[in-house]
C-alpha cells in the first residue's frame, strides 16, 4: 500500500490478519479498509471472524500475522485511544453494582476527560433519566445505548460497533440506524457488524462481507443491489397463463412467485409492458424488481456457502486422517 500525503490513510485498515485458536483458523488472511463518512456493514455468519477482527483492531487479541491500523497507527500506539476510535464490543460488559454514569465517568477519567463530557454523551444517548441507576438493572437496549455513549466519549472520528442490534426492540433498532447515519454524515467512519443483513437495510452505505476468516466481498450497497436486481420484473395479473406464454415467446424466463404474481427475467419493464399490451394481456401491476439487501447478500454468498461446505468436509477428512496417522 502506498500512502501519499494527498491520500490520508483509511480510518481502519485491516491487513492480512491471520489468527488460530488451536486447530481453528479464526482469521485466515482478513483484509479490508473502512472509509470515513460512511456506515460500513461488516457482515457474515456467526463464526466468520467479525468479533476477532474487531478485537485485533482494538489491540485486545494479538494476530499471528498481519496488522490493523487506526488512521495509519496501530492501536497500541494511541495515547488517548478513545479519542481516535470508539468501540462497543459487548454491551453486557458492565460492573453491575456501579451506576451507568460512574461507568462513563471512570472511562472519561482514563482519557483525561471530565464529568462535563460524560453529561454530553448521556444527553445524546437518551439515557439521562436512568443514568444514576445501577448498570446491573439495565435492559439490553439501555446497555446498548450506554455502550454507544461510552464509545462517543472521546468524540472519535472512527466508531466501531459489534452486533449493536442484538436483542433490540424495533424502536431501538430504528434509533441506532438513525444515530449511525448521523455519525457518518458528520464525516466519521462507522463500522458496524451484524450477522443479519436485514438489520443493516437502509443504514449501511458499504458492505464488507466475510466468511471463514476472510473477506468475501467489499462493495457499495447501491451497486450490490443494482447487480442483484439485474433486469428482473415483477408482474401482477389475473391472466397468468396468457402472460406467461406471451413473455416466454418474447425471450423472458418466467417464474410463478404467487397466486397472481410472476417474476420475469431477461426483459426490461418497458419491453414487458409493450409485449403485454401488444397481446392484450391484462395486468394489475408491473414493476421493476428491486432486490432487498438480504437477497443481494444471499446471491453474493451462495457460492461461498458451497465453498464453506466443501472446506468443512475437507477439514473433517483432514482431521480424521490426522487421527489415524
Amino acid at each position: 500500500m502506498t500512502t501519499g500525503t494527498a491520500n490520508p490513510p483509511p480510518a481502519i485498515a485491516v491487513q492480512a490478519l491471520r489468527k488460530r485458536f488451536g486447530a481453528t483458523a479464526a482469521l485466515d488472511g482478513m483484509s479490508f479498509d473502512v472509509a470515513a463518512g460512511k456506515v460500513t456493514g461488516f457482515v457474515g455468519p456467526n463464526g466468520a471472524g467479525k468479533t476477532t477482527t474487531m478485537r485485533v483492531i482494538l489491540g485486545l487479541d494479538a494476530p499471528d500475522e498481519g496488522r490493523a491500523l487506526i488512521g495509519g497507527v496501530p492501536y497500541g500506539k494511541l495515547r488517548r485511544p478513545l479519542g481516535h476510535i470508539g468501540a462497543l464490543l459487548d454491551a453486557a460488559a458492565l460492573q453491575p453494582g456501579r451506576s451507568a454514569r460512574n461507568h462513563l465517568l471512570w472511562l472519561a477519567h482514563s482519557q483525561g476527560l471530565g464529568a462535563k463530557r460524560v453529561d454530553e454523551v448521556v444527553a445524546a444517548s437518551g439515557l439521562a433519566s436512568a443514568i444514576k441507576r445501577k448498570a446491573g438493572g439495565y435492559s439490553l437496549g439501555m446497555r446498548q445505548r450506554l455502550g454507544i455513549a461510552a464509545a462517543m466519549l472521546g468524540d472519535p472520528p472512527v466508531v466501531m460497533l459489534d452486533e449493536p442490534f442484538n436483542g433490540l426492540d424495533p424502536e431501538g433498532i430504528f434509533w441506532i440506524r438513525g444515530y449511525l447515519k448521523a455519525l457518518a454524515a458528520e464525516g466519521r467512519a462507522v463500522l458496524v457488524s451484524s450477522h443479519l443483513m436485514s438489520e443493516l437495510e437502509g443504514c449501511a452505505d458499504h458492505l464488507v462481507v466475510v466468511g471463514r476468516g476472510k473477506m468475501i466481498a467489499d462493495t457499495g450497497v447501491a451497486e450490490l443491489i443494482a447487480r442483484s436486481s439485474g433486469g428482473r420484473v415483477v408482474l401482477r395479473t389475473g391472466a397468468r397463463a396468457e402472460a406467461t406464454t406471451a413473455l416466454a415467446e418474447a425471450g423472458g424466463t418466467v417464474a410463478v412467485t404467487g397466486p397472481d404474481t410472476l417474476t420475469v427475467d431477461g426483459l426490461s419493464s418497458e419491453e414487458a409492458v409493450r409485449i403485454l399490451n401488444a397481446d392484450g394481456v391484462p395486468f394489475a401491476e408491473l414493476s421493476a424488481h428491486r432486490a432487498s439487501l438480504e437477497e443481494a447478500y444471499m446471491d453474493l454468498t451462495r457460492d461461498s456457502v458451497e465453498f464453506r461446505a466443501a472446506t468443512t468436509q475437507t477439514s473433517t477428512q483432514a482431521s480424521a486422517s490426522g487421527e489415524v496417522a
Partner: peptide, 18 residues
C-alpha cells in the same frame, strides 16, 4: 476478577492499551 468475569477488562484495556 470482576473485570474478567464481566468482560470489562476489554473496556479497560481498550482505554489503556499499555
Amino acid at each position: 476478577t470482576s473485570e474478567y468475569r464481566r468482560g470489562l477488562i476489554r473496556t479497560s484495556l481498550a482505554a489503556s492499551p499499555r
